[in-house]
């Protein structure tokens, strides 16, 4: 074999094995974590506790998702809101209200509103995956969370990206690729929201945190706790589930 050809093969080998030798990039880690959390399709049942210093409310929901662009969820409790459906298709959102049998399209400005009184915005609910597209990622260290070694990754918005946060720091564990903590900073660099994951459990063949707490930093005694009771991945969900025509059938 001519020497030149060997060199070429060596160069190709080196090029492809480089990331393997020196670890994954921050973007790959986030993508992998996001994919794990989402699956190709997913079905979940969860409770949402809205906690305020002198008041609390519990909601129960079921949700179906397909890829990153389609999801539909229905409120099963409390009684007053039961049957309310939210459909997210790409970046559009519809809301179906069973009492008046009507679906309403959310205006774009509504995306920044808190979603059903929680500490999450509608935008958070729809665009959880856009952190991969809209931000540049960089590994800035290693820390322990929930007893697991995590990559600490910093995300900064790409130029001209229409995003809400000035900076995001994510902790992803090295073994199971779970997002164990996310800190959201505003454009002035102040910590605004913190999402802390805990109670790691087996959901089918996946290991995931079953409790997510969203804690706004400037409001004492205030948080939203999401507890997953059922979580299934890569199950068969018909495409019709994610259409506005199907909304009044989701229950």
């Amino acid at each position: 074999m001519p020497k030149q050809k060997i060199n070429l093969w060596a160069a190709v080998f080196l090029l492809f094995s480089f990331p393997m030798l020196f670890g994954q990039t921050a973007a790959e880690i986030i993508q992998k974590a996001d994919k794990k959390f989402r699956g190709n399709t997913s079905y979940a049942e969860f409770t949402i506790d809205i906690i305020r210093p002198k008041w609390s409310k519990q909601m129960k929901m079921k949700a179906w998702s397909k890829g990153t662009n389609y999801s539909v969820s229905v409120v099963t409790s409390p009684a007053k809101e039961r049957g309310t459906v939210f459909l997210m298709r790409d970046k559009e959102v519809w809301n179906y209200m069973p009492t008046i049998d009507r679906k309403i399209k959310f205006p774009p400005s509504m995306m920044m509103q808190n979603w059903m009184g929680t500490d999450l915005t509608n935008d958070d609910m729809v665009k959880m995956s856009s952190i991969v597209e809209d931000y540049s990622q960089k590994i800035i260290g290693e820390e322990e969370k929930e007893g697991l070694t995590c990559w600490k990754i910093e995300l900064t918005p790409k130029e001209n990206a229409a995003v809400v946060w000035g900076k995001i720091i994510i902790w992803i564990d090295k073994k199971e690729y779970m997002q164990l903590q996310v800190d959201y900073y505003d454009e002035d660099g102040f910590l605004v929201n913190q999402m802390i994951a805990s109670k790691v459990k087996h959901f089918g063949d996946k290991v995931l945190p079953s409790v997510l707490r969203v804690i706004p930093q400037d409001k004492e005694g205030q948080e939203t706790v999401i507890t997953y009771t059922v979580w299934k991945f890569n199950i068969e969900i018909p495409n019709s589930y994610f259409t506005s025509n199907y909304m009044n059938r989701i229950h």
Binding site: I104, K105, F106, P107, P108, S109, M110
Partner: peptide
């Protein structure tokens, strides 16, 4: 119709 003009629901 239901839509938006920029961020304003229309």
């Amino acid at each position: 119709w239901e839509g938006a003009i920029s961020t304003l629901g229309f």
